[in-house]
């Protein structure tokens, strides 16, 4: 299993670098879809099937379609930049180095004594069974019930973004329904 995880991580890194190097936007978007699938696979290995599910459907499905439809409206070649990539590379290396230095103090991967697993008390997973009358999926229980306010907010954000997209992209004069309506 570690071998599978290792292969997925290597492919993930390779895909990200390929996307960064690529000039053809159409191919880059396809690679973004592959990247989403690979990260969904890693999430599945990391015991988060709900998130893996969402990432596969959203990242590889909807995001790819939306980007391709944008591409159809804008043109698919990226112009070769005249700027030198040296300064961005330097910035990225310094930032990455600082972040990696920061990780040296982080709690270790998968260790049951990590702070995240101790606070709040992990018994809330078992206790949710009594609160929820035996709802097996704890993720759903937390999402919809314990953190219900938060999810209401997130749903409203999705609605707001949808309204904003309509407001930006809808054409009033050529809108077919306005001619149909009395």
């Amino acid at each position: 299993m570690n071998l599978i995880a290792f292969a997925i991580l290597a492919l993930l890194a390779a895909t990200a670098v390929t996307v960064a190097r690529m000039r053809d936007l159409w191919a880059a978007i396809m690679f973004t879809g592959i990247y989403s699938f690979l990260s969904a696979s890693w999430m599945l290995i990391l015991d988060a099937p709900d998130v893996a599910f969402t990432e596969a459907a959203v990242g590889a499905g909807i995001a790819t379609v939306l980007m391709l439809s944008t591409l159809a409206l804008t043109g698919k070649e990226e112009r070769a930049t005249t700027r030198s990539p040296l300064i961005p590379l330097l910035v990225v290396t310094v930032t990455g180095g600082a972040l990696i230095y920061g990780t040296l103090d982080m709690p270790h991967f998968g260790d049951p004594s990590d702070p995240i697993h101790l606070y709040p008390n992990p018994s809330f997973v078992e206790k949710s069974q009594e609160d929820m009358h035996g709802l097996p999926n704890v993720v759903t229980a937390i999402l919809a019930s314990y953190r219900g306010y938060d999810t209401l907010g997130e749903t409203t954000v999705v609605l707001t973004a949808g309204i904003a997209v309509i407001l930006i992209l809808r054409r009033d004069e050529s809108h077919p329904e306005q001619q149909e309506s009395p």
């Binding site: 015991d47 260790d111 049951p112 097996p136 999926n137 993720v139």
Partner: peptide, 12 residues
């Protein structure tokens, strides 16, 4: 960060 070694998905 949510992963525990030897753990399983949080579905009872």
């Amino acid at each position: 960060m949510g992963r525990i070694n030897g753990g399983t998905a949080p579905i009872i």
